[in-house]
């Protein structure tokens, strides 16, 4: 069982690994990131509906993208795992679309669809709009129950009714936990709810 301290040192460690890739093409750093995140990205792909073979390929592609885009990573705002999550998410969307098109080329990668804020900043992805530290602290304040409800919302259009079934709690509880969790986050991020 990891303690909270271990996790947070991992976290800044991961950030540094990505910076090492960006600044000196550090293959050893890449290897360590790959070993931790590759298998987890694969699980993410599997749970999002990808076959074993395509989850493997997508996990490899995601890690390759981490290498290629390392220079765009801003540790002050994104945080390694949030950044890798967005890479994996965008690749998953592209893969689903390519499958629907029988393999023909995409009109545009999904990545652009998440670049909303046009105010000038180095990387205008959503993840870059606030400090990773602040958000991580806010997330850590959520109860395990609240976190679980949010987590389940991350996999393919899980309707609230389905989440209620999985967690074996009434639908109303799913909705109220989600609302509480989001209000909590909003407050912690300095927004009146």
């Amino acid at each position: 069982m990891r303690t909270e301290d271990d996790t947070s040192s991992d976290r800044t460690g991961w950030d540094r690994l990505i910076v090492a890739i960006a600044t000196r093409q550090d293959r050893e750093a890449f290897k360590r990131l790959f070993e931790y995140f590759g298998p987890r990205v694969k699980t993410y792909m599997r749970r999002s509906g990808a076959t074993e073979a395509s989850a493997e390929e997508l996990a490899q592609d995601a890690m390759l993208t981490v290498w290629r885009k390392a220079a765009l990573f801003d540790p002050a705002s994104a945080g390694a795992s949030a950044w890798i999550f967005t890479i994996a998410r965008n690749l998953r969307i592209d893969a689903v679309r390519r499958e629907r098109r029988d393999g023909s080329a995409l009109a545009a990668p999904a990545e652009a669809e998440f670049q909303i804020d046009e105010s000038p900043q180095p990387d205008s992805s959503l993840a870059a709009t606030q400090s990773d530290k602040l958000v991580r602290a806010a997330i850590a304040e959520l109860s395990a129950d609240q976190m679980r409800v949010i987590e389940l919302s991350f996999f393919e259009e899980k309707a609230h009714a389905e989440i209620a079934k999985i967690l074996d709690i009434p639908l109303g509880t799913v909705k109220s936990r989600l609302r509480l969790a989001m209000n909590r986050l909003r407050n912690l991020l300095g927004e009146p709810s």
């Binding site: 945080g79 795992s81 949030a82 999550f85 997330i139 976190m147 949010i150 987590e151 991020l189």
Partner: peptide
């Protein structure tokens, strides 16, 4: 908030 959700996605991952 959507950005915070991407960080939650990171924590989930």
């Amino acid at each position: 908030l959507a950005s915070a959700m991407e960080h939650v996605g990171g924590a989930v991952l």
